[in-house]
């Protein structure tokens, strides 16, 4: 395993230090460096807070800024942040309008955010609501189970909710906006190489020279199945077909198409996959009216990519288009 790092234990903190230093016009560390927040908060606005393990950069810290998040909490690599981190972020960003937590569906994140919310409500009298993003269709829905993971589609939810918060919506309405965005969003990913967790210097899964892992999340865990590697067009159809089957969109439906790199896949390949996915959806009667291609929700140094589709209506389109001024998204 080769990484640019000093020691495994400090990778997350060192990287965050670099991030805040690179974007100190937009963001600042919260107390004791336990979270990162906007340098200047918008008054009277519901605070939007997200978080999760480290290793997904630029998610979520890269989305802090006007029009998106107010704060983000980063844990150790692939490890949810602890309740005190989240509580600190709530305290520093809630200015009376309440706090909306955006959490990727996974037990560790849920439990830590839940404990923090309980503390914030009981000790601090904060008003808290939580959105749980579960866009990953690679996970089968079962009668009893955790349900689907939250992956790259979280970016879309954060953008849409962030814009709505900036527009002045109240906590209750924001939660509804977020739930619609979640209901409209699906993602699926493929890896060509597993992620190397720095502490263990081991890949979480090792693929053969001709294998790919289909249906991966963003924590290096194995995916739904291992398959023979295929050409880009085949991979794109495989993913897009499943998204289509899961979403069952109407003909002429407008969509946002988002191709996300998992860390070690270069822009040239992401654009290539985007082109194939766009043609696929257009051939199936959808209107690809918004597009995003880039490395936004990573799984450390995993080689791979995911495709996310969000069904758009006039309202969500307007919120997607609204200005955003964060380190990773800016328009």
């Amino acid at each position: 395993m080769k990484k640019f790092m000093n020691e495994a234990g400090s990778l997350a903190a060192d990287s965050l230090d670099g991030f805040v230093g690179a974007h100190d016009d937009l963001v600042a560390f919260g107390q004791d460096r336990k979270h990162v927040r906007r340098r200047v908060l918008s008054p009277g606005k519901v605070a939007i807070i997200a978080g999760g393990g480290a290793g997904h950069e630029p998610m979520h810290v890269g989305f802090i800024g006007k029009g998106m998040l107010d704060a983000a909490c980063t844990g150790h690599v692939f490890t949810s942040p602890t309740p005190d981190q989240i509580l600190g972020a709530i305290r520093e960003t809630d200015n009376g309008a309440g706090v909306l937590l955006i959490v990727k569906n996974y037990d560790g994140d849920l439990m830590n955010f839940e404990m923090a919310a309980e503390m914030a409500v009981s000790d601090g009298g904060h008003r808290i609501e939580t959105l749980i993003v579960n866009d990953d269709i690679a996970v089968e829905r079962t009668a009893r189970g955790t349900g689907r993971r939250g992956v790259a589609g979280t970016l879309v939810v954060e953008k849409i909710v962030g814009a709505a918060a900036e527009a002045g919506l109240d906590l209750f309405s924001l939660k509804a906006v977020g739930e619609s965005a979640i209901a409209a969003t699906r993602t699926m990913g493929v890896a060509l190489k597993g992620a190397t967790v720095p502490q263990t210097t081991r890949e979480t899964f090792v693929l053969g020279e001709t294998e790919m892992e289909v249906g991966v999340g963003i924590h290096g865990e194995p995916g739904r199945s291992r398959q023979d590697i295929a050409d880009a067009a085949t991979i794109a159809s495989l993913i897009c077909r499943q998204i289509l089957d899961d979403l069952e969109p109407a003909q002429g439906q407008r969509i946002l198409l988002f191709v996300n790199g998992l860390g070690a896949t270069p822009p040239s390949e992401l654009y290539l996959m985007f082109g194939l996915a766009r043609r696929f959806f257009e051939a199936h009667g959808l209107v690809v009216c918004r597009k995003l291609v880039g490395t936004y929700a990573t799984s450390l140094d995993m080689a791979g990519m995911s495709i996310t589709v969000t069904l758009l209506d006039d309202a969500s389109l307007g919120l997607w288009d609204a200005p955003v001024h964060s380190a990773a998204l800016h328009w």
Partner: peptide, 22 residues
């Protein structure tokens, strides 16, 4: 710790030993 990480690597994200150690 290493065994726990390895068990977690097989069906999770490979850090349970590291987490417990911390």
């Amino acid at each position: 710790a290493d065994r726990l990480n390895r068990l977690d690597g097989a069906i999770g994200d490979g850090d349970h030993g590291t987490n417990m150690q911390r």
